[in-house]
């Protein structure tokens, strides 16, 4: 049984399973999200699509804004800190947010290290593209993992690639012999204890969610069918034509992800989705997912 601290941290993530966590930039959007059935909201200054478009340094959101969002809803409120920015994380913990996302969507503050998340009471979620990244983040104390995908594009292909990679690499571990796990740990650049744990259990010791490019109810159901336990939707909702209707549809699609009749129903009569960006056309140096070490 994990330590009480880790159980509390992963416990809140357990409560979010089967739900949708929506990016919001003000109290009005947070209320629309809650009304639509969001399980939590992520408070930020600009959604990823705008960060991509406008450029500049993307930092932790303004405290006034996060506080306003916390006061406007009864569901959990998350906020993002820059990769490695332990002081932004300390400030967010002091503010009392329910979860911190140490996120590649913001401009990294450290070129080599992530935040030591064991040093915090507030739980952290981190992005990952493969099992090695997942296990390194867990070693640092993350209590929830999400795919990185390619945020702000509305193109789900990278989230799919990352979810498939993580699930496949977990399955592969369960087939290895004890001595082979040492070699695999080296390749994954991850602690052997965590490699052994995943090999034995066949799953992560924390919830595994999906994020990055989810823009339609069908996208949400797709990543759920591939093994995600909940979804994050960033720009996909408030960059679409009718955010409230789209938010409701994505919430229903995430719960009924295996029911094509419901998926058909919620996919009908939706406004235009966010315009989106072909993720394959993004130059490697402009990708957000390569941030993180």
């Amino acid at each position: 049984m994990p330590t009480p601290e880790l159980r509390l941290k992963t416990g809140l993530a357990e409560m979010l399973k089967g739900g949708v966590i929506m990016d919001v930039t003000d109290a009005a959007q947070a209320q629309i999200a809650e009304q639509a059935g969001a399980a939590a909201v992520m408070a930020l200054e600009r959604v990823p699509a705008d960060i991509r478009k406008e450029g500049g340094v993307a930092r932790m959101a303004s405290i006034r804004k996060i506080r306003e969002i916390m006061q406007s809803v009864s569901i959990p409120v998350m906020a993002k800190c820059r990769i490695g920015h332990l002081v932004e994380a300390q400030i967010l913990q002091a503010l009392g947010v329910d979860y911190i996302d140490e996120s590649e969507v913001l401009t990294p503050a450290d070129e080599a290290y992530h935040v030591d998340k064991h040093a915090f009471t507030v739980p952290f979620v981190c992005g990952a593209r493969n099992l090695g990244e997942v296990l390194r983040r867990l070693a640092e104390g993350a209590a929830m993992i999400r795919t990185k995908g390619e945020a702000g594009t509305g193109d789900v292909v990278h989230a799919v690639r990352h979810m498939r990679a993580i699930v496949r690499e977990m399955r592969e571990l369960t087939l290895l012999r004890e001595e082979e796990l040492f070699g695999r740990a080296k390749e994954l650049a991850a602690p052997v204890e965590l490699v052994r744990l995943v090999a034995r259990e066949g799953r992560l010791p924390v919830p595994n969610f999906s994020a990055g490019g989810i823009a339609t109810p069908a996208d949400a159901a797709l990543v759920m069918q591939l093994g995600a336990e909940a979804v994050f939707v960033g720009s996909g909702i408030f960059k679409s034509e009718d955010p409230a209707a789209r938010a409701r549809a994505i919430v229903r699609a995430t719960t009924h992800y295996r029911d094509p009749q419901v998926l058909l129903e919620v996919s009908s009569e939706l406004g235009e989705p966010m315009r989106g960006l072909d993720a394959a056309a993004i130059r490697p140096e402009e990708q957000l997912q390569t941030r993180g070490w």
Binding site: M15, G37, A40, R248
Partner: peptide, 11 residues
């Protein structure tokens, strides 16, 4: 189960 009661109510 546990979770967000406001979300469950929507369904």
């Amino acid at each position: 189960p546990g979770g967000e009661s406001s979300t469950m109510l929507k369904f």
